[in-house]
Design a protein around this nucleic acid. Structure first.
Lengths: 205, 205
DNA sequence: ACCTGAACACCGTTCAAGT
DNA sequence: ACCTGAACACCGTTCAAGT
């Protein structure tokens, strides 16, 4: 095959192919991407460095196009809730990508933008500077955990078990996994908001 | 090679080999386990079903030998903190195992025992039954996220960046990744404890 | 019952060769 | 500059064959 007049590939096309494979199968590979794109496996390396690079590009993709919400006129509680929920929603949109994301260092600017906005909101709220990173990190843990939960095949919560009476009772009227993951996130977020309120009001936190 | 008088392998030996490979390299494979144990790759299948099975066995290993702490005479706040911290400590003992754990359904009884104990403590505290699973799940997210953080190569928090002034300020006096991960967990846990206190005291949560 | 060797289908990455 | 085909070292799983 001669060199085409216009390239057959692009970074965007590769990232799209990878992301759609992850969404539909839970993973991606070079052979499958190449098949999907109608090129040879080796051709991909003209655009990307390696597998990790593609994962970082997928992270960038799902956090791109962030419209900087004007949270300035909102009470900080509402601003924080909005930021945390949007952050989670980006992950929940591609839950099977999350396991690939959590083992890699974040380099993406859009993600850092989320953190920056949360730091600003918490700083404006009056939270002590030493508590800001722990608070943001808590939001991060809640969002990641909640998104990871959506990838689990089926869980032990739903199966009543005589050996775990307290747990079975608490889990008795549980709805779908999606609702449970969201309820846990909202619970954690609300607890965080109230904790920050307390920390701001009194200096003993 | 004839069949040995006593088996060369055992489930325990396989799990030990897998876990030590995970601890030292971040992953495990059948060829490397077989080399470590001095047997052929195929021999492993006499004791385990597949790769996922080994991961579940590793989960069981790190949560085994749980001494049922008598949390009955403690205030529920202290009991919850103790349970949450022990749960996290088990994961932090093998942080590189955590990425392998998070994508699989929990079947392990010892893990369920942790959940059961937390459900009991929260129920005794007077927390509404509908909030018990969200609260336990929050602890789970915090512990998993905090342990996952320890596996990250090196993070963006530490690098000051003019584009993220609020974040850089908040991250200025950060210590090691270990301390940051633990501080975030403790912050989240404290916020959770106070949130449960509020929810118990007033019914408006 | 417990192990080996060989096979199969998969994977990430490199590299010489083509236009 | 952009692509192909072949190569290499790796992987999980199966299975006939040996004792």
């Amino acid at each position: 095959m001669p060199r085409p007049r216009s390239p057959l590939l692009s970074v965007d096309a590769i990232v799209s192919a990878a992301l759609s494979l992850v969404d539909s199968t839970g993973d991606f590979s070079f052979p499958r991407m190449a098949r999907e794109l109608g090129v040879s496996q080796a051709a991909l390396y003209n655009y990307i460095d390696n597998r990790e690079h593609i994962i970082e590009l997928m992270r960038g993709r799902i956090f791109s196009d962030r419209t900087h919400a004007d949270t300035d006129d909102l009470p900080w509680e509402e601003a924080l809730r909005a930021l945390a929920r949007e952050y989670r929603a980006r992950l929940v949109g591609h839950p099977r990508l999350v396991p690939l994301l959590v083992t890699q260092t974040i380099q993406d600017l859009a993600v850092m933008g989320f953190y920056e906005d949360m730091a600003t909101v918490l700083g404006n709220a009056g939270l002590d500077v030493s508590a800001i990173v722990p608070a943001i990190t808590t939001v991060d843990y809640l969002a990641l955990g909640s998104a990871l939960d959506l990838t689990a095949p089926d869980d032990a919560w739903s199966a009543p078990d005589d050996r775990f009476p307290a747990l079975s009772l608490a889990a008795a009227h549980l709805k779908t996994r999606e609702e449970r993951a969201e309820a846990a996130f909202e619970f954690g977020l609300e607890v965080l908001v109230r904790g920050v309120q307390q920390a701001v009001a009194r200096a003993d936190f």
